[in-house]
């Protein structure tokens, strides 16, 4: 980091860059959440199923996020592990209306937590219990019970119920993530 960069960051002119990985099963709403976090001018109207992955950028008051929005389809899930090493934070999205596939979400989370690139790092994980607007959606507490979040002892985690269509609950989650990343480095 050059002298000018140091000065800029000290003065708060330049935001710190953070790599975030956005994971979750297909149709859980990852791309919709990321789309909603972007500035209003950059948003797209139609969200289509992601193929492979896509890279999106958005920033908060102090951090600049680079999000790797991974595809959640079964055949692309083996791509996830290639990005664990670079990630400084993980966003894990769960469809709280899909009770049947809670076990699948838990299985994928288990695989993630047991991966050598993630296991021994204190990396913050933000969970979104998405689609809270659905009539038969489970509460965020119920979701955290079902996918066994209480087992995560060595990493900071947070779950927030969200509705990516209206943006409800997203800001709360991202603020928590921002606090975690800042406290982690300083």
């Amino acid at each position: 980091m050059g002298l000018f960069d140091k000065l800029a960051s000290w003065l708060g002119l330049k935001r710190r860059e953070v790599n975030v990985l956005c994971l979750g099963l297909d149709n859980s709403g990852k791309s919709t959440i990321i789309n909603h976090l972007k500035p209003a001018s950059a948003r797209v109207q139609d969200i289509v199923p992601t193929i492979g992955f896509s890279v999106e950028k958005f920033s908060t008051s102090s951090l600049s996020f680079t999000v790797f929005d991974m595809s959640g389809q079964g055949r692309y899930r083996n791509l996830w592990e290639n990005y664990y090493r670079e990630a400084q934070a993980i966003i894990f999205v769960i469809d709280s209306g899909d009770k049947l596939r809670m076990v699948v979400a838990m299985e994928e989370l288990d695989t993630l937590l047991n991966h050598p690139d993630v296991k021994h790092r204190r990396i913050p994980i933000l969970f979104f219990a998405n689609k809270m607007d659905l009539r038969d959606a489970l509460s965020s507490v119920k979701v955290s019970q079902l996918i066994g979040l209480d087992r995560i002892k060595d990493k900071p985690w947070h779950i927030s119920g969200s509705n990516a269509l209206t943006g409800e609950g997203l800001q709360e989650g991202v603020e928590w993530l921002q606090d975690q990343i800042r406290s982690m480095k300083t």
Binding site: L25, G74, N78, D98, L100, R101, V103, V104, T111
Partner: peptide, 26 residues
């Protein structure tokens, strides 16, 4: 394919039960 999951095994039992299992990705 059941719901959005490709490898789903649905079984019903003699006693009228319903069992749904999902094939692991791995």
């Amino acid at each position: 394919r059941y719901g959005r999951e490709d490898g789903t095994l649905i079984m019903t039992t003699k006693g009228g039960g319903l069992i749904i299992k999902i094939l692991k990705r791995t």
